[in-house]
């Protein structure tokens, strides 16, 4: 009885798994076949790389890749600096009004940047950052969520280490850099994985703030490339889609455990 139910469990779980990755599998199938072979599911048809070539020639992908890469780097560096400083202040420095300011910061968790698109767009334009990668990244740098995460990480570090470093003659900043930051490495790693995958995939805000190929990230480029008005066929769209998700997907498959741990540790994206 229990063996039967175990087999049933395996069967159900694997069936669902196959259903779950089938969109990706079909995209693989379509990307490596000519359109007519792809839609006819002609199993004996030959493989081709032509779709990738057509897709690659159809848009400045190298530029899009560079833009996305630069964007996630800018956002990550900004987030690391700002959330480290603020997280440290909330965790280890006492100053008047600390609790009140912390609540103000936490409020931002529910003011999603996605919702404030209209006024954030006005702000970015006012700062002269429209159609620049800095303009795309800036609203995400002072992440309340990151500040909270860093505060938690710094709070868990034993005060004795802090005191020891001070006796050795370290200043405030030295203590932060030499004691707190190295000890919070797992948190930084988790935060980095979540931040990079979030911003690699972000779409709506970059769509609004970018206006030229010199700043467009992959997601926006892909949406323009695949727009029905452009009349691109399904095999070429599949090839372009696989191309643009490949770096993150491969990174995920290789570092799967770290990714899952990162998402768990940080709770939300």
């Amino acid at each position: 009885m229990s063996r039967l139910s175990r087999h049933l469990d395996s069967f159900g779980a694997i069936l669902l798994a196959i259903v779950w990755i089938s969109p990706l599998l079909f995209a693989f199938w379509a990307a490596f076949h000519s359109t007519s072979d792809a839609v006819n599911f002609n199993l004996t048809s030959s493989l081709t790389l032509k779709n990738f070539q057509v897709a690659w020639d159809g848009a400045p992908w190298l530029r899009y890749f560079m833009n996305t890469f630069l964007l996630v780097t800018i956002v990550l560096i900004g987030q690391f600096i700002i959330t480290t400083l603020a997280g440290f202040a909330f965790a280890q420095v006492s100053f008047p009004g600390k609790d009140f300011i912390f609540i103000l910061v936490l409020l931002q968790l529910f003011i999603l940047p996605e919702v404030l698109i209209v006024e954030n767009y006005a702000m970015v334009s006012r700062l002269g950052l429209f159609d620049s990668l800095l303009g795309v990244g800036m609203p995400y740098m002072a992440s309340a969520f990151g500040i909270f995460l860093m505060r938690q990480a710094f709070k868990s570090i034993p005060i004795e280490l802090d005191e020891a470093a001070r006796i050795e003659g370290c200043g405030w900043f030295g203590v932060l850099l030499k004691v707190y930051v190295p000890l919070a490495k797992p948190t930084y790693l988790a935060y980095a994985l979540v931040s990079v995958s979030t911003h690699w995939n972000n779409f709506l805000w970059p769509l609004i703030v970018t206006n030229s190929d010199k700043t467009r990230p992959l997601t926006v480029g892909l949406s323009i490339f695949g727009a029905p008005e452009n009349g691109v066929d399904i095999s070429v769209i599949s090839a372009a889609t696989l191309m643009s998700v490949a770096p993150l997907l491969i990174a995920f498959l290789v570092f799967q455990r770290q990714f899952v741990q990162a998402f768990l540790r940080t709770g939300i994206k």
Partner: peptide, 15 residues
């Protein structure tokens, strides 16, 4: 099960 999580919504829509 987890793979769709790392894909951008735009790519998911294309798939």
């Amino acid at each position: 099960y987890f793979t769709p999580t790392v894909l951008p919504m735009i790519a998911a829509a294309n798939l």
